[in-house]
Design a protein around this nucleic acid. Structure first.
Lengths: 347, 347
DNA sequence: TATTAGCACTCGACAAATTAGAGTGCTAAC
DNA sequence: GTTAGCACTCTAATTTGTCGAGTGCTAATA
């Protein structure tokens, strides 16, 4: 069956109406509300075709139609028009980013808040991480009599602390000396390069503080492993409860369960380095509890090869077009702020 | 009116029944279910008295009775029996604590998870902070061409990073030198002592790196101010939806709204240094949205004068006795683990 | 041939009526 | 002081009826 202009118009009418009302929509309503120049009977015939094509469904016989996942998919892929974000929203994002660009963890927290505020959906933001993290600096700091903090800085501006227990905390001078040794060996190397082989070699060369060094090295390896353990921030979970499709408490519970598990969120966001906006509609998501939700996600770039992800979750009837605009606006503003920063520095 | 033995038994029956069923309970049910040796008519008379005393209420005429906030309060203060935590639960907590005692932020995160798992209520844990934080160490670390990380360690084992922007990042040697200066001046001083006066004095003495020093000092002050900005972890929010009293989505939304605001959570946990378990029932809480909830909270001690708080939120009919046991068990285990650690070190 | 008007039919949402059940308070008897 | 019994009340659940929105089909129309 051919999808002619008229069918598309009707499908768009159904989708746009359903997005705003969450109520099934019938032929008469379309005829009245949208000026398509055809009667409800004709619309009825066309709707029957659309249903046959699997683009819309009837929740129950003799009710109006509702877009199917396939219908949304077609709309999103082919007919969705992109709106540009309003000036003031762009400004809002710009300010939010500029104010937090130096504190990555605040930035992602505030980003989550801002996006959930703008879209009224639930927002997940993952901490940016480099595809190939390079160590920039290591520093040991005394914590108390028996513990040291190892601070590690990567080129992705990620700063991580890790406590390590020792028999007795050495003096600051010793710690500084040790930090220097670590730096000369590790600085500029990617995380993958710091493997058991290098570590054993280092241990052999420095037998002086060998016991301490050995403990420190173990910690370095641990941090490096845990650096994949990205932080994830969530905002706007309560919005979920505002949608009629989740007034069934059981459904809402399933979603909250997923949102509470950091690992699931990370799986959800995935780890593609695709820079464009991706849309996952309803059943396309492999997680059972998420089959009534859609997820719109994108990756943002915070520097050379440093990517984080941001995802927005809502009911399948979410306002795809608006969310895509907001995400594109966000990514664009991050770029703008970063460019402004780097040109400022080079001047 | 006198609250005799029999009235107390009936009140306890009502409370314990309501805690588990969430259904109003009538005189006949009590007579059948609880072997009090009196007829339903007598129970009826007694219940009438209990209602007059404000300890129970009828949700509507000719329904069973439900405990009032005042009823719970009386029960909690006078009649609640404390159960001891089961061996395996103690062990579970002990292991959780030992595994995380060296990483404070993990510890509080895992604690939130563990407690919400054990109680099935929502758990809030705030990062421990000292009543009178003393600086132990400051360290400047290069981040990139124009930013430095200032790492600050307190005697409360709190480690905080703060980025600061500079015109040009100095060499590591300069940073180390500066770190040393900062340490000689600030080490061992409490946060309150580091005020504008000290800072200005320091600035005057060291005019050499004055501009840099000035920026660093501003940051130090900023961190010190933000150190009150404690982290808070939440777990088990989804449990809220499991309780019939919150199947009204609007009520649930109000609570979620509160839980999403960190500031509100901190207000909720308060900042008393009282070490015993406190119970706030329904309307006793000043927040409007929380008037259908009870909050059970306690402070835990992680060292000399270092306290964090932990709070558990549930419906007013929550199982006070169980929650108190779990909290006491947790606090006890923290003590045990800390003692074990310190004796291990001194040996 | 495509479109439309008309009609019978279906189904869910809603309201009103009915019923069953749990609970109460009161009174009189024990 | 306690209890059995009874009339009464109120809610929750069920039933019944009505309305409206929607459908599919058919026959007439442009």
């Amino acid at each position: 069956m051919i999808l002619n202009e008229r069918k598309i118009k009707i499908l768009e009418a159904i989708i746009s109406d359903y997005i705003s009302t969450a109520e099934p929509i019938g032929s008469r309503t379309i005829a009245k509300k949208y000026d398509l120049g055809i009667s409800s009977a004709t619309i009825r015939n066309e709707m029957s075709d659309l249903e046959e094509m699997g683009l819309i469904v009837q929740p129950h016989a003799s009710s109006g139609r509702v877009p199917s996942d396939k219908g949304y998919r077609l709309y999103v892929d082919k007919f969705m028009r992109q709106k540009d974000l309003a000036e003031e929203q762009m400004l809002f994002l710009h300010n939010m980013i500029s104010n937090n660009i130096n504190q990555i963890d605040y930035l992602i927290q505030e980003t989550a808040k801002a996006i959930s505020m703008l879209t009224h959906y639930t927002t997940i933001v993952s901490e940016p991480q480099s595809q190939k993290t390079i160590l920039k600096h290591l520093q040991l700091i005394p914590l108390d009599e028996t513990s040291i903090v190892l601070v590690l800085v990567t080129d992705g501006k990620i700063v991580r602390n890790h406590n390590l227990q020792v028999k007795e905390t050495p003096s600051i001078d010793v710690l500084n000396k040790l930090s220097n040794i670590l730096n000369t060996y590790f600085q500029g190397h990617s995380l993958e390069e710091i493997d058991i082989a290098t570590v054993t070699k280092l241990k052999r060369e420095f037998s002086e503080h060998s016991e301490l060094l050995s403990e420190v090295l173990t910690s370095v390896v641990e941090i490096i492993q845990s650096i994949d353990n990205v932080q994830v921030f969530l905002s706007g979970t309560k919005n979920i409860l505002g949608f009629p499709e989740f007034s069934d408490v059981e459904k809402a519970k399933g979603i909250f369960q997923t949102l509470e598990e950091k690992e699931l969120l990370i799986t959800l966001l995935g780890n593609s380095s695709n820079e464009d906006v991706q849309i996952i509609i309803g059943n396309e998501n492999s997680m059972e509890q998420m089959k009534d939700c859609s997820l719109i996600k994108t990756n943002y770039k915070l520097g050379n090869q440093i990517y984080g992800s941001i995802g927005i979750i809502g009911p399948t009837r979410m306002d795809y077009s608006q969310v895509v605009s907001v995400l594109r606006g966000l990514v664009k503003n991050i770029d703008v702020v970063l460019k402004a920063l780097s040109s400022e520095n080079s001047s």
